[in-house]
Amino acid sequence: MSKISNKPVRLDRYLASVTDYSRSDAKKLIKSGEITVGGIVVRDPAQSIAVDAEVNLNGHPLRAVGPRYIMLNKPRGFICAARDRRHQTVLDLMDEDNPERLHVAGRLDIDTTGLVLLTDDGAWSHAVTSPQRQCWKSYYVETAEVITEQTQVHFSRGVFLKDDKARTLPAELDILGECVARLKICEGRYHQVKRMFGAEGNAVTSLHREAIGEISLDADLAEGEYRYLTADEVASVQT
């Protein structure tokens, strides 16, 4: 897991990193006497401070944004992107400082619901999404046609998807009902679950991600709600 650097940082740079102010605006705030460090007004933008210093802007405390690990219960109609001209994004559901620094570790389609992980820790995100790390993703799937045992066998061997040169990695399909199943995959190809069933002549009508690795969607989170991961949940992903 990434750690926050303890190296001192310039006050103007620190202020710009924990707020939406630009460096030039941060310098103006500092020079105007609106910033205190440890209860003392500081007017020098170049002054070095510790990253864990007590910094206030007009009496309001500021904090450094360290690595963040968040789970979100994604509803339909939102896309997993930082911004989009036509659709709302998962970041629109969040009330976070510097949300643009967060990115999704394993995207979901606009009409797919369930667990989304967001972080600003690149190494952790890579561990979640890389097929080589074998971080399994579990989906609850409903289909238009009956799911056959033949599909179960094909998925366990890997299937060829249209326009892809290699088979999918072996997947685990647990048939729960005629048109209901739980699918576990360790890849994240474009529209993979839908394309896998499509390769079997079936269509996915509803798709919900329940878990990523050992991290399961919190049952207490309503659609559109999120929470920070626990230390154990973060540590369950080996970087």
Rank of each mutant, 00 (worst) to 15 (best):
I4E: 12
N6T: 14
K7V: 14
R13S: 09
S17I: 03
S17W: 01
D20I: 00
Y21H: 14
D25E: 14
L29D: 03
L29F: 15
K31T: 13
S32N: 11
S32M: 11
G33I: 09
V42A: 08
S48Q: 13
I49C: 03
A50P: 01
A50H: 10
E54G: 04
L57C: 04
Y69G: 06
Y69T: 07
G77V: 01
G77K: 04
F78E: 09
I79F: 02
A81Y: 01
A82H: 01
T89G: 02
L91P: 05
L91D: 02
D95L: 08
E96G: 00
V104S: 01
D111V: 00
L117I: 08
T119A: 07
A123G: 05
W124C: 11
H126R: 14
A127C: 10
V128Q: 06
P131G: 08
P131I: 09
Q132A: 15
C135P: 01
W136G: 00
W136H: 12
K137R: 15
S138L: 09
T143L: 01
Q150I: 09
V159C: 05
K162D: 14
A166M: 12
T168D: 08
L169S: 08
L173P: 07
D174S: 13
I175Y: 04
R182D: 06
K184F: 00
I185K: 03
R189V: 00
Y190W: 07
Q192V: 00
K194V: 02
R195A: 03
G198D: 01
A199H: 06
G201I: 07
G201T: 07
D218L: 07
D220R: 12
A222N: 12
G224Q: 07
D232G: 06
S236D: 05
V237S: 05
